[in-house]
């Protein structure tokens, strides 16, 4: 076994265990801790795929900014133990199980039934080749300039929307 496979197994185990722990812990803050651990395992997996930029951005954006905001809200509310929503609403349980089965089937299909010669996989292989920041930057500002600018425009619109919503009085 070479080093990459060992690292993959370790990181995958951490990712799976932490995500299961995240949804089973009753306390929201502890769940958040496991989610952060899961982000780390995921960014390690990105590194193994030679996608350095995505790996670091995963940590900066998700673990460093979004989860800090989550924790901030959780701490301000200081919820001790979340009430089990399934006990309040039985119909929700069936709905949740149906969604979980659907998503699991999708993932299982992708892993076991898609063949390596698919068009999707060739694109994945190409993206593995261009994981460094220079290549991502070149691609973003040449081939994908329109989607990139469109995404920036959408984000700007969302920011302005949030500002308008949080304003208390309209004049």
């Amino acid at each position: 076994m070479n080093l990459e496979i060992i690292l993959f197994i370790v990181l995958a185990l951490v990712a799976v265990v932490s995500s299961v722990a995240m949804i089973t812990r009753p306390h929201p803050v502890i769940s958040a801790v496991f989610l952060i651990l899961n982000f780390f395992a995921l960014s390690g997996l990105y590194l193994l795929l030679n996608a350095q930029f995505i790996a670091v951005v995963q940590v900066i954006v998700y673990a460093g900014a979004i989860m800090v905001l989550f924790l901030f809200v959780l701490m301000l509310l200081n919820t001790n133990k979340e009430d089990n929503i399934f006990k309040q609403n039985k119909a929700l349980k069936i709905f949740a199980i149906a969604i979980a089965v659907l998503i699991f089937a999708q993932v299982a299909f992708l892993i076991f039934f898609s063949s390596p010669s698919d068009a999707l996989n060739s694109q994945v292989a190409e993206s593995v080749q261009s994981g460094t920041i220079q290549q991502i930057g070149t691609k973003l500002y040449t081939d994908y300039i329109l989607p990139f600018e469109a995404a920036g425009f959408l984000l700007l619109a969302a920011t302005i929307g949030a500002l308008v919503l949080s304003k208390k009085k309209f004049e």
């Binding site: 930029f53 670091v56 940590v59 800090v68 460094t132 920041i133």
Partner: peptide, 16 residues
């Protein structure tokens, strides 16, 4: 080659 981003990532974790 992403050294500066590495520092940014780690300092953003310092808050934890």
């Amino acid at each position: 080659n992403i050294g500066i981003l590495y520092v940014l990532a780690l300092t953003s974790l310092g808050v934890y």
